[in-house]
Design a protein around this nucleic acid. Structure first.
Lengths: 150, 150
DNA sequence: CTCAGTGCAAAGGATTTGCATGCCG
DNA sequence: CGGCATGCAAATCCTTTGCACTGAG
């Protein structure tokens, strides 16, 4: 889904984000972003390292932190002990996660626009009541994926 | 909000859940549940230990694990590195979380029933498409809480 | 009495950091 | 050239576990 001709575009945007923060878009960071573009959902460090063996663990951690600060990447935490990373929403599209309780895998999905809008309105109504200023929302479904229920 | 006369009721339900699993409801576990009833949102281990200094760390971890297995407690993970725990939804009510990006605190909130129902329907529609079997959903708002924006 | 539960301290595992080296700008 | 980024290995920090002890039934 993410392997379309917008990839080059994403690269440019990441480059821009880094430049604004006075950070370099080095080859290691490029390879990291490339791996993240690959996944159908957020990836764990292990998955990233497996996907590109040339990436050293510590650099991956460091660069993911920087890419997150810069706003190019989002860190996700599920119930298991592994943090997961994905490209930031403004580089892809707003989406949510299907988290399989059995295999632990995380995949993306979207809500139809009407439902998403309605949800957004309801959320703002609720947040306003307590003076909370919403930045974004996060919606995950926990359950069993198709392969695990088969 | 949770400090009402349903507290005794919750205690009974937790006791029942433990009994079903052939687990004892010991004083340490009682104190732990008592602390969880205190919070306006999920608590970190540190918060729990601070709330009741007589609770040893390792027992808290162990008992939270057991209470989670039994279905009395839910483990939450936010973006920071601390796991948080709260009483299971069927002991309280379905609710969501306001996560402050500045101070890291988590508080509960609810959506109005109409919005919640609409959301649920939309979620099932989306999940059905990919053969995902929903157990529950998790909805968090990320942003700035009233005290931090002041 | 017996066995699950407890508490201490030491181990485990994901993540972070120090430091010498290499490379981008 | 100068400083940021890198990579290795050692350190850190939340969490888990081993083991001897205690208390509930």
């Amino acid at each position: 889904m993410r392997t379309t001709d917008v990839d080059a575009d994403i690269d440019d945007q990441v480059a821009a984000l880094l430049r604004q923060a006075e950070q370099r878009y080095t080859s290691g960071r490029r390879r990291l972003v490339a791996v993240l573009q690959t996944g159908d959902g957020p990836l764990t460090i292990t998955q990233i390292l497996d996907a590109d063996r040339s990436l050293p663990q510590s650099s991956v951690y460091r660069n993911l932190t920087i890419l997150e600060e810069v706003g190019a990447v989002t860190r996700i935490v599920t119930r298991d002990d592994f943090a997961r990373y994905e490209l930031a929403e403004h580089l892809t599209e707003h989406h949510h996660h299907l988290i399989c309780s059995t295999c632990g895998d995380v995949t993306d999905f979207s809500l139809d626009p009407r439902a998403e809008t309605g949800l957004d309105r309801a959320l703002h109504r609720a947040a306003d009541e307590v003076g909370f200023d919403i930045d974004t929302h996060r919606l995950d479904l926990l359950g069993t994926c198709a392969s695990c229920s088969g």
